[in-house]
Design a protein around this nucleic acid. Structure first.
Lengths: 320, 320
DNA sequence: CTGAAAGCGCTTACAG
DNA sequence: CTGAAAGCGCTTACAG
């Protein structure tokens, strides 16, 4: 920029004005500057500009893993918002390792990102407190953040699917199909709460053995249907059941849709939600907050939808 | 940092020394500085440091789309390298829109990334020339970059699967199974070259109609087997064929493995390659180049492997 | 062992 | 309409 200035025989400030399209420059001066920029192949250093400006126009996304389609979908929604607001995105993945979450988040904060979108790992997120105090906006996605034993309330938003409602819908669907002994495979408290609500609403009592199933021994489980809390478990269940004879099979409902689910055999009913919407919502929450919207931090639940598939292929449940 | 210095009653330089763990500071002075850092909640601004240092320790990854599992896998490989070398990653996706590729790449360059990993779109990449001249290292992944009509040779590396070898293996496999009329669905010249080589090696002549198939009319195609050049086309073919009677089906070989391929019905043979390895290779190439390795730019092909699956389910081919 | 000065590449707040 | 000075938060190259 200094070189451009001297070549165009103007002050630094004038170059800055031309580069930023600020008014108050004679066409002749401007063209002289433009010429010098062209000659020298000048490209403004955005990082330097942002240092002076105070913000970085950068957000950071911390994912579980890029092998997780939900993370990719969240990213897509996020990117829409990011693009339309002129931000750039740092990203990284944790592989569910909480120390990597911390390392990544702090590295991004050291680069002074304006905000962070985090798929929380199981560890504590307390390392974030000084950062949020320093002005970094944070939003957790897909899952609620770990609740600290000390009860520290993180100044952050959360965006996730309506798990409870999803559990309710899934189990109600299975009950309507005639199932009575319904299993639960997973760990989400909210989803399990939905399961329990639907059972209770139908006057059924869940045997504790049904809700503490293990994917590997699913073939011997005393249930005719099972609700899987996430894609990994759904796939695990499908693989186990695929090896069984027709008669040994059970109905599977998975939380979270996935590609090719309609081609999978036996057909798979899923509780679907839109992870892209989660990303978009999180991005918009962040952008609004960065623009100075000081509303209290909150949790946003996106709606879920039951997609019944291939239920006709299932063996009839044992009772009515 | 200025505040820390004055609170610890030392010069700026001394704070810098403590923060960077440089030698030559009395334990007393150091602890005084550390105390001030603690009191003030000081966190060094990495961006400012990098501005002064000249490099940014940042790479940029430009993907097709996060819905493309290959891109996610490349990212994973890349991240391994990036993490172990202390880089951070900017990322964004193009949705195959060349203007978005350019916008993203230039935005990253304006932030002065040290290097760029690009999944090339169909457009020209000439916009990169000034950037590479300015010192940005670039590597294309998964596909070769668009060849410019003017014949400009981009100073960049390329890392992709051995498509030609894959095409050869796929078609040789189908021929060994008794197929003679084999179709090709896609546009990759290298893959088609492999197809042609295998046909020729078996003394077969490909009807032009076989290599210009359309996914939508696949059910009427005059072939008993088809090689699909990418996941999108493979899925398209599977969906079309899934609607057909047993007798109307044909053998499908897909270029690129995907999750659940083993559950898909009809069974799917694929030419598999490791996109994570592509990412890792690209990352290492870049890191080495940034470390000053001035070897000529080159194209690296990663090996492919044929995974036969479910072929027994296919109807027998019409000739021997 | 410690520090004062200059500078990375830009913008802000003024003055003319 | 144009510019000289100061400063964003840090490091480099010296000097003491």
């Amino acid at each position: 920029m200094k070189d451009v200035a001297s070549r165009a025989r103007v002050a630094l400030k004038t170059v800055s004005r031309v580069v930023n399209g600020e008014p108050g420059v004679t066409p002749e001066t401007a063209s002289r500057v433009l010429g010098a920029i062209e000659d020298l192949g000048f490209r403004r250093n955005e990082s330097a500009r942002l240092l002076r400006t105070g913000r970085t126009a950068t957000l950071g996304f911390i994912a579980d893993s890029w092998a997780n389609p939900d993370c990719s979908a969240v990213y897509r929604g996020l990117e829409e918002v990011v693009r339309s607001h002129g931000y750039l995105l740092y990203s990284g993945s944790t592989d569910s390792d909480s120390s990597r979450e911390e390392l990544l988040a702090l590295a991004m904060c050291a680069r002074r990102v304006d905000g962070l979108i985090i798929t929380p790992t199981a560890g504590s997120h307390d390392y974030l407190v000084p950062e949020t105090e320093a002005g970094v906006a944070a939003v957790f996605v897909l899952r609620p953040p770990t609740i600290d034993l000390a009860g520290t309330v993180l100044p952050a938003d959360t965006v996730l699917p309506d798990e409870r409602g999803g559990g309710r819908a899934a189990v109600a669907h299975l009950i309507a199909q005639g199932h009575r002994r319904i299993g639960f495979l997973g760990e989400s408290p909210q989803l399990l709460a939905g399961y329990a609500e639907a059972m209770k609403a139908a006057g059924l009592t869940a045997d504790p053995a049904w809700t503490t199933l293990d994917a590997s021994s699913l073939d011997h489980a005393p249930v005719t249907a099972v609700l899987c809390a996430d894609r990994t478990r759904t796939e695990g269940a499908l693989h186990v059941l695929a090896g069984l004879a027709e008669s040994g099979r059970m109905a599977v409902v998975g939380f979270g849709d996935f590609e090719l689910a309609d081609l999978v055999s036996p057909g798979l009913t899923v509780v679907s939600y839109d992870p892209t919407l989660i990303g978009r919502t999180a991005g918009e929450l962040l952008v609004r907050r960065l623009a100075g919207d000081g509303i209290p931090h909150r949790t946003v639940e996106v709606p879920v939808r039951l997609i019944p598939r291939g239920s006709a292929e299932f063996p009839p449940p044992d009772t009515h």
